[in-house]
């Protein structure tokens, strides 16, 4: 580990100034559960670390008829500690429940999980399924981008030099909607997704027909994916296993996984289909109860 400077600004403007001045050799710290480990092992050698936990805009947690606003440094524990999120955005609380253990969840943030941009990040398929928009601030002002367009490669994303993720905005959830995230891990705890799938559905009044659906897939490509075709083909189909199987088959078409120490191409492709079916099944059950 090399020595570095540390700043903890209390305003968004100061943070952007400091990050921009850092000239690329700066790293943003929210929960730090990924960053500190990377610095310790020498994978990252920043000259400046900017702690963003003291900035009000990054600590927003608001849920109302417009939807959900989630500040980028809000912890996973705060997410699943919010009953409204657990009810209406359950895929996101599912994700937050399985990122690390309880100590990690008390520190780690959804924003940080997104900005770390790992292909296997557990929160990103849920953000995609819940149609999240990323609000980014920088020296040139503020811009917005869809969650599925945020990551560009393993560990890489759209943030330009000097830019900072401020919050994640998700639309309101109508009646008869439900969502779920699940992942496959070889063990039952303390593990990283070999494949992860987040799904959200909106049903008609009878609860029998799918009006719309969104499926996000993790760990099966260089970046988390929005399974567009698999999602859209479900519109108007009955909410049953046969429809889920169709979506699963379409989801399997878009993945481009690799062989590595966590799984094989064959395994990840097959399990993408399995988890898509299982995620949709639970999302529909939840929608019917909502």
């Amino acid at each position: 580990m090399k020595d570095f400077e540390y700043e903890a600004p209390v305003s968004l403007a100061t943070a952007i100034e400091q990050i921009a001045a850092g000239n690329g050799s700066v790293k943003v710290l929210a929960g730090g559960t990924d960053l500190i480990d990377h610095i310790r092992t020498g994978r990252l050698t920043p000259s400046l670390v900017v702690d963003v936990k003291k900035i009000p805009e990054l600590n927003v947690l608001e849920i109302n008829s417009d939807g959900l606003r989630l500040g980028a440094s809000v912890s996973c524990a705060s997410v699943y500690g919010n009953e409204d999120i657990c009810r209406d955005y359950s895929a996101l609380s599912d994700s937050c429940h399985i990122i690390g253990g309880i100590q990690i969840q008390n520190r780690a943030s959804v924003g940080g999980n997104l900005c770390n941009s790992g292909p296997a990040a557990d929160s990103i398929p849920s953000l995609i399924a819940l149609d999240a928009t990323c609000v980014i601030a920088g020296p040139q002002g503020t811009r917005e981008i869809a969650a599925e367009d945020f990551c560009t490669a393993p560990g890489k994303n759209v943030l330009e030099s000097g830019e900072l993720l401020v919050e994640l905005v998700m639309p309101a959830r109508p009646a008869k909607s439900g969502s779920h995230y699940l992942r496959f891990i070889p063990r039952n705890e303390m593990d990283i997704a070999v494949v992860g799938v987040g799904a959200s559905v909106m049903l008609d009044e009878t609860g029998e027909t799918i009006q719309s659906a969104r499926i996000g897939i993790g760990a099966a490509a260089p970046t988390p994916l929005f399974a567009k075709e698999a999602s859209e083909l479900l519109t108007g189909l009955p909410a049953n296993e046969e429809s889920f199987a169709k979506a699963a088959a379409a989801a399997q078409e878009i993945v481009t996984p690799i062989d590595d120490m966590r799984g094989t191409v064959e395994f990840r492709t097959h399990v993408t289909g399995v988890l898509t079916k299982r995620a949709l099944h639970v999302a529909v059950e939840r929608a019917r109860k909502s």
Binding site: R187, N188, E189, D191, I192, R262
Partner: peptide
């Protein structure tokens, strides 16, 4: 120990 998977008590 993340990717060298010894069983945990949950397993």
């Amino acid at each position: 120990y993340l990717d060298y998977r010894v069983p945990t008590c949950y397993d």
